[in-house]
Amino acid sequence: MSSLSLFAVGQDVFELYPADSIPNSKPSSLVEKAETAGSGRLIISNVTKPTLTVYLPDPSKANGTAVIICPGGGYRVLAADHEGAAVAKKFNEWGVTAFVLKYRLPSDESMENKTIGPLQDAQRAIQFVREKAKLWQLNPKQVGIMGFSAGGHLAGSATVHFDQAFIPNPLKTSLRPDFSILVYPVISFSDEFSHKGSREALLGQEPDPEQVKFFSLENQVTKKTPPVFLVHAKDDRTVKIDNSLKLKEALDKARVKNDLYTYEKGGHGFGMNNPSSDVEWMKFVYQWMFDQDLILKKR
């Protein structure tokens, strides 16, 4: 039996770690819940056992590119459908294999150090997909990451902190995503622009200044940072557009390829479909990926 099959919990769902080897975890009474919110959207809470759900494209369309999707939810819940499964299915239409990451939500009850728990899972997801690339006929050099809101902060953290492994990495597998797509992302933990709910959930009510700096992603960009595509609405009151603007400024300064699509209106949390606009931002993502050979012709 392969090591991969040992982690399988369903036809298309895989545990990120063996059940007794989840790093930075401790026994707790938390019970995972999946509920339908008033909006009809699926919300998952109390995640202590991270998984990857795999969405495979039609074999005739598959091009070897992969993207790991991190749903948002303020580091308190996961918006698993409109910022997860629905997005994965759209990528499948393009021939891209998509993986929705159900990452652990920071908790002092279930983690020794809650500040690094979600980032560990994002790094493990990249490691897992690269090391098992042959299983899904993927190009291990075409593995990207995507995130919405606080999931954007998580994906962004993996985008800028790939040189520091927070998980065991005996094969020295690259933890650097090849591209990053961040949608109305939390970027800065500074007092001026921070989404305070996300910062408090991850770092606590009185965060250490060094942790604030570490997780303020605009301070962590280097010339090695992979290409980034950003989406944000100018009237977003939950996560100010300054977050994306500050990151873009840092990317430009480091001469990292990036693009930013902004809506005049749309607020926060609209997923793939901004109800205030007829423009589908995912079409721009497709073109951006195509222009950079991130969506490849079938081999």
Rank of each mutant, 00 (worst) to 15 (best):
F91D: 09
H153S: 05
P227R: 01
W281E: 11
P27L: 00
F189G: 01
W288T: 09
L101Y: 06
F99W: 14
A66I: 07
E112L: 15
F284R: 07
I187C: 06
K283H: 08
Q142H: 15
G267L: 05
G147P: 07
E35H: 05
K90Y: 09
R104C: 06
M111F: 04
I187Q: 03
E131Q: 10
Y263L: 08
F99N: 10
R176A: 03
K265W: 00
K89M: 13
P209L: 11
P106L: 13
E32P: 01
G151T: 10
K223V: 03
M289P: 06
K49Y: 00
Q127P: 01
I44A: 05
A150W: 11
L260G: 00
L175Y: 11
A88Y: 09
D208F: 07
V96R: 10
V279H: 06
G117L: 13
D236S: 06
N273P: 00
K298D: 14
I69R: 14
S194D: 14
D81L: 06
G151Y: 07
S276M: 04
T238Q: 14
E280R: 07
Y55L: 11
M111V: 03
D178S: 13
P59K: 07
P185T: 11
R176K: 12
S190A: 13
P185W: 12
K223S: 05
P207K: 13
T48C: 04
M282L: 12
D178P: 06
R124D: 08
D235C: 01
E15T: 05
A98E: 12
R124L: 04
Y75R: 07
N63E: 15
P18R: 08
D208V: 04
R199K: 15
Y17E: 07
S2G: 03
E218C: 06
V129M: 13
K297L: 15
F179R: 12
V239H: 10
G72V: 07
T262D: 06
Y261N: 06
K253F: 08
W136E: 04
A37T: 00
T51P: 00
V129H: 08
Q205G: 15
A233H: 05
A88F: 10
T262R: 03
S157G: 12
V67E: 09
Q142F: 12
V256L: 05
T48D: 02
G204S: 13
L203F: 03
V285M: 08
T65R: 15
G271R: 08
P23N: 09
D58R: 01
R124N: 12
I44N: 09
C70R: 09
N273W: 03
L16A: 12
A122Q: 10
P106N: 14
L119M: 10
Y286R: 12
K240E: 11
E264C: 01
Y103H: 14
A86K: 04
Q287S: 11
I22W: 02
A125P: 09
N139P: 02
G72P: 08
E210Y: 05
A34R: 13
A155H: 07
S3G: 06
N113Y: 08
N274Y: 03
F270K: 02
